[in-house]
Simulated scan of single mutants.
Amino acid sequence: MSEGRNKGKGSFWSRFLFWKRKNSEQDLPGEPTVRESRGYTWELKDLREKVDRFFLTRKKQSGTIFESTTLKLTKNNRHLFRLEGKEKSGREYSILFVTGNYLNELNGKVNGVVFLGEADLNRILSSDQKSLKGILSGIQTPDWDEESWSLLQEEPELRKSSDSWKEVLAWEPIWSQQVIIHLRPNVLAVLLVFMGKEFEDFFRKNSAVRVQEMVSKELYFLNVSGNRDFPHSENLSLYEFDSAKRELESVLNRIRSKREKI
């Protein structure tokens, strides 16, 4: 009899502990609750505000970006910055920061900064020295932004501004839609955050409902988790706009080439 009671008692406590364990696993009290999506418009607006607060370096073309009692950050060019300050000990410092390769043209003279190894530096000395493009062709993997790349082109029609993507606004729908189709949803989400209303209007006009839904999810995951969890994403983070812009430029070049052959 007591054995039966013990058996029943054990069965009861086993069921209770199983239910409690299962319930606690579902609740995950130690994990922060992730909010639900608030929709495309809200997520995009919130992301743009976050980016605007974070990227102080984008607010000015040049000049003082930040200054406090201990340090000062000055922007000399779109990729060139100088950090100056004084340590608590009284020692002063002045350091140049370069965020990427760049070329500029002012008053008929090209200047800039290029990262390369010593072997590449010696290699370009034996390259074609008739043009800057010929000299810099010795660099194996130049990571140019669009504005720098355009300065290397000898043909005027190839010289494009940083807003050259806007040529697609005048393209026929079949080609505009191809641009959207060939861009990953994650890349589209990052571009929407950084490139403003004109690109957003272009996206909404030339994308299918399903693509818009996927991009909306990407915006949500960018906002709540840095986009590390969405299965359709290749994890381009919110602050990797340069990578997204390069992918856009690559797609534009391919579509432009096809369009010009028609």
Rank of each mutant, 00 (worst) to 15 (best):
E234H: 14
E218A: 10
M214A: 10
V98N: 12
E198H: 01
D163W: 08
K45I: 01
Y93I: 11
V114E: 04
L188C: 08
R15D: 10
K60V: 11
L136T: 04
Y102A: 03
G112N: 05
P32E: 08
L125D: 09
S237G: 12
D143H: 10
S250L: 14
N253S: 15
L151C: 08
G4F: 00
L222W: 02
Y40M: 03
K130E: 14
E167G: 05
N111Y: 15
Q178L: 08
S225N: 08
S137W: 04
L169F: 02
P173C: 09
L169W: 01
P231R: 05
S137Q: 09
N223H: 15
E25V: 07
S162V: 12
K130M: 04
E240V: 06
R254Y: 11
K75R: 11
K86A: 13
I135E: 01
S11Q: 14
I124A: 03
R38K: 15
V190L: 00
M1S: 04
W19L: 15
G108E: 00
F221L: 03
F203L: 00
E146L: 15
R38Q: 15
K160P: 00
K60I: 10
F194I: 01
K130H: 10
N111P: 00
R91N: 12
N206F: 03
A189I: 02
R15Y: 03
Y40D: 06
S2V: 06
K130W: 04
I139H: 00
K7S: 08
S176N: 12
K258T: 07
L56G: 06
S250D: 14
H182D: 14
V34T: 11
I139E: 02
F18L: 14
H182A: 09
T69D: 15
L116D: 03
E49N: 09
S150M: 01
E157Q: 13
S176E: 14
L222H: 05
E213A: 10
F97Y: 05
F194H: 13
L158P: 00
D201K: 10
